[in-house]
């Protein structure tokens, strides 16, 4: 590759920490700043960093294009599915309180978690797909 040694080693060093930070932002989003949108963008940023430093092939080994394309609608499905789950269990659409039989508040916390996962999947998928689309056009 044409990129410099420092860049390649540096990328390898920070890569796990970026992913760790994205997961922290995702799962700690209920207690600190963060959530599905931010975590999704950070995850996509990690793939883009690999793509810039090591070339598109390396990025595609980490995040295969088929998977990325599947993630885009999958996240919306998770989100809407959580809503329909509430509908099936006898409450309104997107009312999560039924997800836990004993404690409605616990169910709503769980619902928030599932919905945020859906957001994470769609946002990271879309942002990575955008990067792939623009880069592949340039070759």
């Amino acid at each position: 590759m044409r990129t410099s040694l420092i860049l390649r080693i540096g990328t390898k060093l920070v890569l796990p920490f970026i992913l760790l930070f994205a997961l922290y932002v995702q799962f700690h989003g209920e207690y600190g700043p963060g959530g599905g949108f931010q975590a999704g963008v950070i995850t996509a940023g990690m793939v883009i960093l690999v793509g810039i430093t090591f070339g598109l092939g390396a990025a595609k080994r980490i995040a295969p294009p088929g998977l990325v394309r599947a993630m885009v609608p999958l996240g919306v499905l998770i989100y809407a599915g959580t809503g329909v789950l509430g509908l099936l269990l006898g409450k309104n659409f997107l009312d999560y309180s039924v997800l836990s039989a004993s404690d409605p508040a616990h169910g709503r916390g769980l619902g928030i978690f599932m919905v945020e996962s859906g957001v994470l999947v769609t946002v990271s998928g879309t942002m990575t797909a955008l990067f792939y689309a623009f880069v592949e056009r340039g070759r």
Binding site: F37, V41, V123, T126, L130, A133, F134
Partner: peptide, 19 residues
């Protein structure tokens, strides 16, 4: 918060049209 992420998605759509 949601507007920012939607904003970048639509910006990318516009740029794709420019390309």
């Amino acid at each position: 918060l949601t507007a920012i992420v939607v904003g970048v998605a639509t910006l990318a759509l516009g740029l794709a049209l420019v390309v």
